[in-house]
Structure formats: structure tokens, C-alpha cells
Design a protein around this nucleic acid. Structure first.
Lengths: 144, 144
DNA sequence: CTAGTTGCAAAGTATTTGCAATTCA
DNA sequence: TGAATTGCAAATACTTTGCAACTAG
């Protein structure tokens, strides 16, 4: 459930660059959140709530509203990908490529599914005047 | 947006049987909603709100809370399939088979995508102790 | 008759927003 | 400095729930 890295100076530095490169102003709050998300370079799935808790535990001083706004800003800047699975929460994924996800119905958790194998052919064509922004593939899991 | 059939006696009759067969008690409200959903045998995608409006227009006398409860009941009974796409609303589909959907980001509408073509191979295996309940494939569309 | 269902209004959950105070470039 | 960002609290959007009144079998 936890799985967020500590915020080391190195992580903060990396986070700052990540933001600057996408023209997102690296404020203190955004650097904190960015460092938690990608400080160690690993892929992560977060909700506003989990990230807020991690930030509060780490250095505090980020309001929940800012977490929401920041996640949205990161998404708009192309730093994150929003994955919508359950009616209630939105998940944000640091891995930008299309890849399948497992959604665990009992715990409402979202995890990566092995992507190597998946092979989707003959994807329906986008209707006239539109293009496909993303292909969400979610495997809903239930306890056997 | 509309696309709901009128509620004819034939539709009501068909709806009643549909419910009875799944051990869902065919109350007046449920028959109304069921007739709107599958009276004419066509596939449909609804949200609580669209179905509520259709019911209100048709014969009235169904509260929004009941629409929510009923959609959930139909789902539990295996008469509908819930499709989760966007953070806000839940969609319900009368077509129970796995098939891909288009989600139109600008209008927040959900429609079927042509299913003939789609060919998914090597779906990741379900982790130990779980099974895959459904595979949701959603193509998010944006205006070009 | 009585267990299941309805409707209302109230509560809940996830998220967004208005706006004054603050902060980064 | 000035435009962008923050934080709070209030607002919003969707959905569920408590409970008394009703209804199908």
C-alpha cells in the first residue's frame, strides 16, 4: 500500500527537472509530489488520497485540494496518465504507455498487469473526425 | 441521446419475464425500467440519470434513488453489465458480452465499438486465487 | 401476512472551485 | 513585480442509506 520513496535531495532534484522540462512551475508542493511519484524512477499508481497521505507523512504542508489540482496539472502536462476504473476514484499512473491493468474488486486497488504478452489486433478504427487518445484495458479480478 | 422505446404492453410483458427469470421481483417501477432498457430487444447504454429521465417522460413515478437501486439490482442479478469509464458516472449496458466501447470525451457518451474486428490475444493470466470477471476495453475518443 | 421494495430527504464520497494570501521567476 | 499557485472552506456531482409507508406473492 505504501511504496513511496523517501524524498532525498537527489529525488527532489530529479523531480524539479522533470517538472521544468514540461513547463510546470516547480513549486515546493509540486516538487514534493513529483519526488514521491517518480523520485526513484519506478512506476506507481496513485489516487489523490494515497498521494496526499504520502506527502503528509513525508514533509507535510500540502493540502488535499492542491494534490487534486497538481495531479490534474501533471496529467495535462503529459507527465501522468489518468486511469479510470471504478466509478469512485481516479488513478494516476506514472507509466505513460498503453498497458493493461488489474483492478482488484475487493480492495479497489489498481496494479499493472504483465504487458509483454498482451496482443491486441484490429482495434476498431476511430470514427470520422476523431482520434483515439488512449486504449484502456482493465481486467477486473475477483477472489475465486 | 434519447433512444428509449415506448412502453407497450408487449414490452412490459417481456420485461416482466426477463425479471422473473432472474428472480427479481417485478414491481411496477422495475417493469417500467426494464421495459425501457430491453423492451425492444436492442442494446442500450444508460446512466442512472438518462434512465430516470426516460422513466419520468414515459410514465413518471420512479424516484432517482430507486433507479440507482434498481440498476444495481439488475447488475447483481446479471441482467446488466456495469461499465466504468469516467470518474463521475457509471454506465450500464444491456449487452452482457465482453466488447469494446468508445467513450466520447467531449460529450461523455458511451457507445459500442464494432466488435467483429477486435482480437485480443494472450490476455495476462489472473493472479493466484483470483479470476477475471470482465475485460473492459475502452477507446477514448477526442475530436481531431 | 410479511419479506422485499419504494420514496424521500439526509448523508456520503470524490472532486472542483472561489478567492484572498502567498510565492516563484 | 506580476502572474501563477496555494489553501481553506464551500460548492458540486454522483451515489447510497435510513426508515416509514407500501406492495407483491
Amino acid at each position: 500500500m505504501a511504496g513511496f520513496p523517501d524524498i532525498t535531495p537527489v529525488h527532489a532534484e530529479r523531480a524539479t527537472q522533470w517538472l521544468s522540462q514540461s513547463n510546470v512551475r516547480p513549486t515546493r508542493q509540486r516538487v514534493t509530489l513529483a519526488a514521491l511519484l517518480m523520485g526513484d524512477g519506478r512506476d506507481r499508481h496513485v489516487t489523490a488520497e494515497t498521494l496526499f497521505e504520502a506527502a503528509s507523512a513525508a514533509d507535510g504542508k500540502v493540502s488535499l485540494a492542491t494534490v487534486y489540482n497538481t495531479l490534474r496539472a501533471f496529467c495535462d502536462a503529459g507527465l501522468l496518465r489518468e486511469i479510470v476504473v471504478d466509478g469512485a476514484k481516479s488513478y494516476f499512473d506514472t507509466d505513460l504507455c498503453d498497458h493493461p491493468h488489474f483492478f482488484w474488486e475487493d480492495s479497489a486497488e489498481l496494479t499493472d498487469a504483465p504487458r509483454e504478452s498482451l496482443d491486441i489486433r484490429n482495434l476498431p478504427a476511430a470514427p470520422e473526425g476523431t482520434h483515439v487518445v488512449a486504449v484502456d484495458v482493465v481486467l477486473r479480478l475477483r477472489r475465486s
